[in-house]
Design a binder for these strands. Structure first.
Lengths: 306, 306
DNA sequence: ATTGATCATAAGGTCATCTTATCGAAGCGA
DNA sequence: TCGCTTCGATAAGATGACCTTATGATCAAT
């Protein structure tokens, strides 16, 4: 097989343009013999003459003409590789695949996406909403670049950045407004509506109540916080929601939201990515944007601390 | 400026395809460290990571994906350069610009072009018809690849190949048929019709008659052999034509053609090209095709020797 | 804890490529 | 016709790019 080098093509291009070994060599910042030799080698490896050397003039052969036009195209493409690298070196650009768990996505994404669009124009954000375990799996094998979920994740291969910690609040039917916040024992006696298995938020609620994950009493699992809140509004039971969901979810339901006595249940929302990700630096930046978006969100909508 | 090498791009492509340093190195027939180093250097010169290296897996970065697709395109283009060279190395292909003088072109070209089309399919022949001096000029500065004309040309920078030598015949009005062929003295007394200045055939005729080129007596120069023959048919005078023109030019005119006594006037038709032309080898081939075309032509149509 | 897999690093040798110096051919002017 | 100049090719030596083998580091799996 022929083994051309870009160097040869660059020299050839210069010679084709200048039509003069000496000047072309200058243009390439090499000596004339070096250029002569490379051109000779190029012609030998092609098995064809590219130039016709007469005493006074240097001319491209028929084949050389065609060759030159292709070579120019190739050299341009190679230059573009460099441009592409330069462009993507500084700012994060292109596709960013980010996963978010369902108890965060609907509340944070609008603000986050809005802010990212402003701070990282040209970033093409793809969002995937699913459970923590799936996010971790997809992150691991490169189908995602980052994930926003409840910490801790404790995977040593991931970098973990906490964004903020928020309280979990109790949602009761509207008529319970004003009643004292139940103690843990009272809570355990109430009908607690939970998300389906697999949602970390379910586990967090159970953990707060000191209930073994296996020992849930009924099949009244909801597939989203919205569903749970609506069920609460219908008087079926009580549930938890995180602060960030309060404004959205309790607006249109006849429920009331109460803050637990300290120690309140909380969850820490954070962002994770593969430690090996070359986007690490930019992801840290992005995590700040995300964090700020979320704080604003929480402070605007959460009920005052009790 | 960035200085990429094709080698790096080839290695990168292999690594992108295999996703494994060891196997990619095998595919490139080099050792794994050699590949590692080239990839590292490539990434450094780009200033961006192309791969994300985790313990177990090798993955292209976002940028790497885009880079890979462009690199593949470039590598394909480079391969095509090789193909192009291989294709044009063997058979002469592409444009061939050939010049022919006007006293040859109309008679030889039909046969020559036909034969070339058969023997050198894919050859795109461009014909230019003009005087010897212009042909030489255009050949010199590369606007033509070869020329067919009357030898000798005596330019040391040209290769000269004689194709054949043909006799020049006398064309007289039809009623002169059967009359003895005039001697040189008688000929000089007759009204000799000639081509315009610049045509070598004019000079050849004058030279045969031993007339100084400056001393032509009247303004009855024709711009083509056809014109001259028609004028002879009209009884205005006599003229010469080369054997190859006899069949074409005397068919439709009331003229008769006579062969001179030996030593007959002759002209040698040949082909020339720049000695430095890389087409030299193929041009020699072509000159044979041309020569054969012309011989057949002459033998078919010329009147028998007296 | 050990082993195996995998990629990075190190050290040394080889070959490609560069440089300077020089040659050879050809055009050009005296 | 004889230098003189220009231009590309060639030669020889120096440098550096690149490859190889050997080894290190890391991480996962046993």
């Amino acid at each position: 097989m022929i083994n051309l080098t870009l160097k040869q093509l660059r020299y050839f291009d210069a010679l084709a343009r200048h039509g003069h070994f000496g000047r072309a060599a200058d243009a390439c910042a090499i000596s004339q013999p070096a250029l002569s030799m490379q051109i000779k080698e190029l012609e030998e490896s092609l098995g064809t003459a590219l130039f016709e050397r007469s005493a006074r003039q240097l001319r491209l052969t028929n084949f050389g003409e065609e060759f030159a036009s292709r070579v120019r195209h190739i050299l341009r493409s190679v230059e573009e590789l460099g441009d592409l690298a330069r462009a993507s070196r500084d700012r994060l650009v292109g596709r960013l695949r980010i996963g978010v768990i369902p108890t965060i996505a609907p509340y944070m994404l609008p603000a986050v996406l809005g802010n990212l669009a402003r701070t990282h124009a040209g970033l093409d954000v793809h969002v995937r909403e699913t459970t923590t375990s799936r996010l971790i799996e997809e992150l691991s094998d490169g189908r995602l670049d980052a994930a926003i979920l409840a910490l801790p994740v404790s995977e040593s291969s991931f970098a973990e950045v906490p964004l903020f910690t928020e309280d979990l609040l109790l949602v009761r039917p509207g008529e319970d407004a004003g009643r004292p916040v139940p103690s843990l024992e009272e809570l355990r006696a109430m009908r607690l509506l939970l998300l389906e298995e697999g949602h970390c938020f379910r586990d967090q609620a159970l953990s707060f109540c000191n209930i073994q994950p296996g020992l849930t009493r009924d099949g009244l699992d909801g597939s989203s916080l919205a569903t749970l809140v609506q069920m609460v509004g219908a008087g079926i039971g009580v549930t938890f929601i995180p602060e960030m969901a309060v404004a959205v979810e309790t607006r249109s339901a006849s429920v009331c939201v109460a803050r637990f006595a300290t120690p309140q249940p909380t969850r820490t929302v954070g962002m994770i990515w593969r430690k090996t990700s070359p986007l690490a630096k930019q992801l840290l930046e992005i995590s700040e944007v995300v964090g700020r978006s979320a704080c604003v969100l929480r402070e605007e909508h959460a009920p005052a601390s009790s």
